[in-house]
Design a binder for these strands. Sequence first.
DNA 1: TTGACGAGAGAACGAGCGTTCTCCTACCGT
DNA 2: ACGGTAGGAGAACGCTCGTTCTCTCGTCAA
Lengths: 183, 183
Amino acid sequence: MDSAVARERALDAAEELFYGRGVQSVGMDDVRGTSGVSLKRLYQLFPAKEQLVEAYLERRDARWRGQLAEYVERHEEPEERILAVFDWLGEWFGEPDFRGCAWLNAYGELGATSARVAGQVRAHKRAFRDYLASLVDAAGLPDALAGQLFLLAEGAMVTAGVTRSAEPAAEAREAARLLLRTT
Amino acid sequence: MDSAVARERALDAAEELFYGRGVQSVGMDDVRGTSGVSLKRLYQLFPAKEQLVEAYLERRDARWRGQLAEYVERHEEPEERILAVFDWLGEWFGEPDFRGCAWLNAYGELGATSARVAGQVRAHKRAFRDYLASLVDAAGLPDALAGQLFLLAEGAMVTAGVTRSAEPAAEAREAARLLLRTT
DNA sequence: TTGACGAGAGAACGAGCGTTCTCCTACCGT
DNA sequence: ACGGTAGGAGAACGCTCGTTCTCTCGTCAA
């Protein structure tokens, strides 16, 4: 098996397991079992578990933001684009294996012990916030709105994760719509 | 040492350590060292670590909601009371040992493995949401607003925790103020 | 004074798991 | 065919930590 293929399979398994059951309750042996990549190979690709976690978050970050942007760009109107963010969140929340925001979960588990993971979480959130700011800016709306929309989105993610419900997305969307109207 | 005293000391130590460093990275031995309560006594009071965690969350829940209500009730106007929630959050975020929402942190760490902890987190969040709903109702505002304010508060807590900043409280307060005005 | 009981200190036990090592097999070039 | 190498399976190692056990000491009632 090619190294690149083994790496992808390892990351696929890591993502499924870490996201689904949490990082700490998944052992490297579980990753081997799910991926079919031997321990020796796993440790060649990722010298320690923490680096596998980092790679998992990094790859997921790229995909998550990419899919969000792709969804948003299907809309023309600048204000529609902003609301589309919350529609996309709602679709995500409704997926059967949705288990909350992967970065917030990782932060809760590892933020206190792994500075690198904590940094990745902050970077991901900053990137998401910056993306919202760019949408707000493109709509000619005041900068301060971006922070408010960000808080709504974060609140929706965390609440959807804890309650296992997609409803927070609709609530956040409605709040966002009202905030857009006040300016 | 009286059993009740030992219990309080154990819970004080547990709260300081669990909240400050996370549950998983604190051992029962650390709790003994900080509290001065022997392991034997600890296990008499709390037959397993999970029950110490539950007791920690339960006691903190009572205090957290009590202090919030106390702060809010210092204000007369119904709408001022709603905004006071966010002022209180801002004061909390600014405390030097603030490390995010204890329940969301616990959920990230243990939500996937401990059904009882997950249930406590949901109960705490539901109680907070219900409290917001009672404030909204007392102000004669539409029920739907409660959910939106809740999302803003949750987003502020989570963002303040990750970024170690008190600013999200002010942002959420401003968003809340705008939402109050739209109705 | 003595015997019984409770409590504390800390060693001991056992499980889980990250990481490494051993052994064996299969394939490759010559 | 054969020696060498890479890779896989899984045992082994070492550490952490939740939980229990042992041993000793102090206290208190009779």
